[in-house]
């Protein structure tokens, strides 16, 4: 792979705090190696701002391997930028061309207030998990792991749902700001497995109720979330969630 250097212009959202109106600031960056990751480019920009005695841009990140779900930028109108099945930290500058202008915004959703610049508050996603995203089992009470065989295909499908990294790209992409893909992923992951099946209905009910309460929108099946999900979580899991929910409500 031959990598080179490019010059780019950046339009970055700067916002001092939740109550600040916010604005775009423009920056120019020259000689950016295309082998660099997008966040390394942001590091270089911050280093440059520091050199000028200015405050660097705040953004969330940690693992830089596409698994912790911390990084969260809206790049050129797309959550995690112009590549498929990646997080912002896995996006590389070779996806951009010399002379490009790149617009960078925070996740925008009612349930994700901006903390500063590109950093938003996603604690609402934790609150949804706390509402029911678990199997009620205490440490030490588990039977032997092989006592309950699980079909390989089922385990694989459960993994596909469990792959969600809780980044919130689905919410930021959805025009209604809904968290249905996120909830569908957890409900399906656990409902598919015998261990999680038992509480499946109550789980779906509780997590959805919490989602509504926290100001997430409802799902109108446009499928935009699936396209931007870095872990390619399928919207078929929303259908499964709806089934679990329906069964739950019929029973009540």
């Amino acid at each position: 792979m031959s990598d080179k250097n490019i010059n780019i212009k950046l339009k970055v959202w700067r916002q001092n705090g939740p109550n600040d109106a916010g604005r775009f600031d423009n920056y120019e960056m020259n000689e950016i190696p295309t082998a660099a990751s997008f966040l390394e480019m942001m590091d270089m920009l911050n280093e440059k701002l520091l050199g000028e005695g200015k405050e660097p841009i705040s953004f969330d990140h940690d693992c830089r391997e596409g698994i912790c779900g911390a990084c969260s930028m809206f790049i050129n109108g797309r959550a995690h930028g112009p590549d498929n099945a990646v997080t912002t930290c896995q996006l590389h500058m070779r996806k951009f061309k010399d002379g490009d202008t790149i617009t960078i915004e925070p996740w925008r959703a009612k349930a994700f207030p901006v903390i500063k610049d590109l950093m938003v508050d996603r604690y609402s996603l934790d609150l949804i998990q706390q509402a029911g995203g678990y199997v009620s089992v205490n440490t030490g009470s588990a039977p032997d792991a092989n006592s309950m065989p699980i079909h390989k295909d089922i385990a694989e499908e459960a993994f596909d749902a469990a792959a969600c990294i809780g980044c919130g790209a689905c919410v930021a992409t959805c025009k209604n700001g809904s968290a249905m893909l996120f909830v569908g992923a957890k409900v399906s992951h656990l409902a598919l497995l015998p261990q999680g099946k038992i509480e499946a209905k109550e789980r779906a009910q509780k997590m959805l109720a919490k989602m509504d309460e926290l100001g997430f929108g409802s799902c109108s099946n446009t499928g935009a979330c699936e396209v931007e999900c870095p872990k390619e979580v399928s919207i078929s899991f929303i259908a499964r969630l709806n089934r679990e929910y329906l069964v739950a409500n019929l029973k009540d």
Partner: peptide
């Protein structure tokens, strides 16, 4: 060994063989 039991009970989707065992 208890860790594996505990994790499976929580719903950790470990890789499995065709017969359904871990």
């Amino acid at each position: 060994a208890n860790i594996i039991d505990q994790s499976v009970a929580q719903g950790v989707p470990f890789g499995r063989e065709y017969g359904g065992t871990l």
